[in-house]
Design a protein around this nucleic acid. Structure first.
Lengths: 205, 205
DNA sequence: TGTACATCAGTGAACGCGCGTTCACTGATGTAC
DNA sequence: TGTACATCAGTGAACGCGCGTTCACTGATGTAC
């Protein structure tokens, strides 16, 4: 039974969890090391037993996020197989689902200003997530006649950008920018129209 | 001749300009009122002659950004007329062009955490920009048979999201997330495929 | 099973720093006569 | 044109605050014998 007595038991993860909650609640710049320590019931100095400092703590939170994210993307891809189209659509949905379910992680990953390259592990993990989407795009592009086939990296970039834009603009509490449609619908229809434009979906459903 | 002697001449705008430069260089949380004052060659206390405080200064920077943005969007729309399709495409391009040309404004508007509703002027100005895109989408949607015509607000939301995503992910110095394609190309092709999906562009060019 | 001891996770006090904000002031500017 | 004066933009010193980080320490834990 951890969490009792002088020694915390699992302070490292408790600090990450506290950081995630704070980042979610107050944004990436509202997060402070001292506050995270406090929420974990510990002195700020104790943080330095587990992390090099503030940045390092954020980086760990982002890393855990990328790991979950990549897992989710892979699961989504697999669940769509053997249909390449279903796989592609599922990864797009997984992006939004992740952002909704793990908002703290999402902000740590994409808005905290953390560099993906500060840490080889972080770079590898984010690459893994990206690769799932690129693989899905590649498979899908094979259904298009080669002579009119745009590079698959471009597909994935389009979908990534659309998903990210939907999340940033419509799926979070940006005050004032109220969403005219549920974000999920927005992404779903956007991807649908896009795929129709690629000739991968029947022009009339 | 302003800018000489004890009185500054145009301190208010000089502070906004300094703030924009700082926000561009260090991100929204890297910006400090004191630093902006310093760059304008003035004591921090002097800022309070022109603004209520830090937030108010950021809000003014964002407001000026929305005004420029809305102007640019309107100009783009007009330049595409009488073709509704050209107008629509032009507004999408204008979004990216604005983000590139006025990065400080862009960040102040979309990433500083400022609320669009803190200020009626700000709300009006951002609404004006949004309206241009919505109007463009509305006109365009009239070229689609009514029975299979999705709501025009949905178009504009799709394009807005795609543009925003391209800017955030590929058009800025996010370290590590190197762009596989020039952002302009990415947006251009993405919008192209999307419009084809709507049946507004010939399926083969 | 009991004792001695090394380990090391967390303490608590302290630090220097830059921040946003306030306040009484000063002195340049522009207007009234 | 020259003088008196009101205005008010900017000064400079001070504030309290919370931040990230350091350091010598303490005492709980687990292992060796």
């Amino acid at each position: 039974m951890p969490k009792r007595g002088y020694h915390h038991g699992n302070l490292r993860q408790a600090l990450v969890d506290a950081a995630l909650k704070l980042i979610e609640a107050r944004g990436p710049s509202g997060f402070t090391l001292s506050e995270a320590a406090k929420q974990a019931g510990v002195t700020p100095a104790a943080v330095y037993r587990h992390f090099e400092g503030r940045e390092d703590l954020i980086a760990e939170a982002a890393l855990q996020g990328f790991d979950i994210f990549a897992d989710l993307m892979e699961y989504a891809y697999d669940s769509g197989q053997p249909s390449d189209l279903a796989s592609f659509e599922a990864t797009g949905r997984a992006y939004l689902a992740f952002a909704r379910k793990y908002p703290g992680h999402y902000v740590a990953m994409f808005e905290s200003g953390i560099s993906i390259n500060r840490n080889p592990e972080l770079a590898a993990s984010s690459k893994r997530a990206l690769n799932v989407l690129e693989r899905a795009a590649e498979r899908l592009s094979e259904h298009i006649p080669p002579e009119k086939r745009p590079p698959p990296q471009m597909f994935s970039a389009h979908i990534w950008a659309l998903s990210h834009g939907v999340v940033e603009l419509y799926a979070r509490g940006n005050p004032g920018t109220k969403s005219p449609f549920p974000p999920e619908d927005l992404l779903e229809t956007g991807v649908g129209i896009y795929l129709r434009g690629l000739g991968l979906v029947a022009p009339d459903e």
